[in-house]
Write a protein that binds this DNA or RNA. Structure first.
Lengths: 353, 353
DNA sequence: TTGTATGCGTTATCAA
DNA sequence: TTGATAACGCATACAA
């Protein structure tokens, strides 16, 4: 200890049974009422709704509150109202960098609007996810589900209680925020075609992934338009390691360009290919998906279709908070644009015209 | 809407003023009491403390609770007890990958012990941090401060109210969890020395950073021990860009090896050096710090001193939760070991014996 | 072991 | 515009 206590007779052990209040404890509206010489209910009004109290008593109360260093007790407030100024976010995997931006986006717009973010992880399990969601529903005003694993019906059941917004998946009758892959994929495929590629491979993600299906659809559509041949290659898992493992299959397709379900696959694939002596992009072009943190750490830096995850998080939070204030549409789909980020891992084949 | 409502007279708009309870609302201990034919207080006892009720009424109550799909109302519980089963985590910057692992570690051990994580960001501002911390203190049972920017005194003041654990900084009289840099730096420097390096540069982090100072101390000590000459180079900011900018100064030192304050600096430095035609590690060895996500995406993959951030987060959460149960030491320092992760960016100089 | 009574801090309803 | 008072759901001394 370098500093003497400024008040209180002794250190307050946090192990005490009673609520840790040294001496008098936190100020309540009663304390303010006493100081300001008004009724507690008047204090409550003055502090919650601005206009329902006379200007001078308002000031009286505000001064008293400031003097007493008053802080509302959110729990006491939550009891009668049911509102907590809190919203939950459940992500499938905190380890996955994809979610970092989502978390950040949600957190940022949350604090901006005076809401607190509560975070939970489903560990990729639908059951864990549902449990976590149920728990959160009791404490939070609303919920954001990022890449949920549970059934549509479970999600809709949750939403009967309080507002729920879904990210990265489209669920009928729910507010959903999803990246619109068409633009970004279109740009990527056109770029590849312009560089003379005739055949490209798509390395797919998990079979059950909603997004992977969308991306494959997008690739097919864009390739048809640009008259490229598209072949699909399955991966074992959507990780760097999965990318390494899929290299052999990719080579077997004789494609000169690859678009992967996500950046991790692209990075692993590129590493493996380079380790085998192939030059990127001189002998093969590689395009990732998402533009996660670190996508530009590679040599060459990874060309990728950027998924605006931060915007997704922010958009979902905005929508949810609007809903909580009775302002937004109760369902629909918010599509955020994807775009090609052209870096070094894609380009013209060496020796092609 | 694809599915009819199963109960309730009409859709319950979330915008309703009253607590969103369709019809009868969530079950309370009173409902359980009625079903089980006992007094509400008995229900409370049965559900909170296991042993204080007879076996058969216990079962009676549990059955009724299950049947009614009872969920405790955390706010109602928090009001009399002051406890919320919630703990806060404040990080300086959600963007910074350093914190990802900390968040994950804390979240994981939190849920393991039935605590919910509440996340906030200080945006690198001491003032914002203090505000966020104060807010959290009113709702959470305890707080974890990761790389706090505020003064020691502010931290201690916070800790008078409820338990606070600090990560990445040592504050007198507080429980602190910090990576012990000595082992990792020692390994790095010895590895460099064994590869024939005689002079190394340390690229420092922010001037005010507590950790940067520790790391520089560690480098000096280890270099003295291994008879290496160590020079210090200042960076403008601890980012990839900062690493690029510092390349010129690093070259000016004529050092053949570099250890940077963090991985981001190392990656930027390596990119800039390689862009200038230097071979890594043939002409210069680069060692980063932290082993963040993506450190192995580079070519060559980055040698780095791993900071066990996940363990820090988990350790801090464990300590905090212990404190909340009156089990742990109220202060002290938990040091978690760092270690060298030898990858491709460091090694022997080309042409050296 | 179980029931009774009261308080936690706030909002909301009703009068004044 | 303000004051009195009843919930909100749970925990806990205290009494039985």
């Amino acid at each position: 200890m370098t500093e003497p206590k400024t008040h209180g007779p002794a250190a307050t052990p946090h192990t005490a049974r009673k609520p840790a209040r040294d001496g008098k404890g936190n100020a309540t509206i009663y304390d303010i009422a006493k100081v300001a010489g008004v009724n507690p209910s008047t204090v409550s009004r003055a502090l919650s709704k601005p206009g329902r109290v006379s200007a001078k008593t308002q000031k009286l109360i505000e001064d008293a509150a400031a003097e007493l260093n008053y802080q509302v007790n959110p729990f006491a407030r939550a009891l009668p109202t049911g509102r907590t100024n809190t919203f939950g976010l459940i992500v499938a995997d905190i380890t996955n960098p994809t979610f970092f931006d989502i978390i950040r986006g949600a957190q940022t717009t949350g604090t901006l609007r005076d809401y607190t973010l509560v975070l939970a992880e489903s560990a990729e399990s639908a059951a864990t996810e549902l449990t976590a969601a149920r728990r959160m529903m009791t404490t939070a005003d609303g919920l954001i589900l990022a890449s949920p694993r549970m059934d549509d019906d479970d999600i809709r059941a949750l939403a009967r209680d309080k507002p729920v917004v879904v990210i990265n998946r489209e669920v009928e009758g729910m507010p959903c925020v999803i990246p619109d892959v068409r633009k970004g994929i279109g740009e990527a495929v056109r770029s590849l075609a312009a560089n003379g590629h005739k055949k490209m491979a798509f390395v797919a993600g998990p079979a059950r992934s909603w997004m992977s299906a969308r991306r494959w659809e997008g690739v097919q559509a864009a390739c048809e338009w640009s008259r490229l041949e598209a072949v699909r290659v399955e991966s074992t898992k959507p990780t760097v390691d999965g990318g390494r493992q899929v290299a052999r299959d990719v080579l077997a397709t004789n494609a000169t360009a690859v678009l992967t379900y996500n950046d991790l696959l692209a990075i692993g694939l590129m590493q493996e290919l380079q380790a085998g002596g192939m030059a990127v992009p001189d002998q093969i072009s590689i395009v990732g998906f998402d533009d996660i943190f670190g996508a530009d750490f590679t040599t060459p830096p990874l060309t990728t279709v950027r998924s605006p995850l931060g915007e997704c998080g922010a958009g979902a939070a905005t929508w949810l908070l609007d809903l909580l204030q009775g302002k937004g549409e109760p369902d629909g789909t918010l599509r955020v644009e994807t775009e090609l980020v052209l870096r070094g891992s894609s380009g013209r084949l060496l020796g092609s015209t």
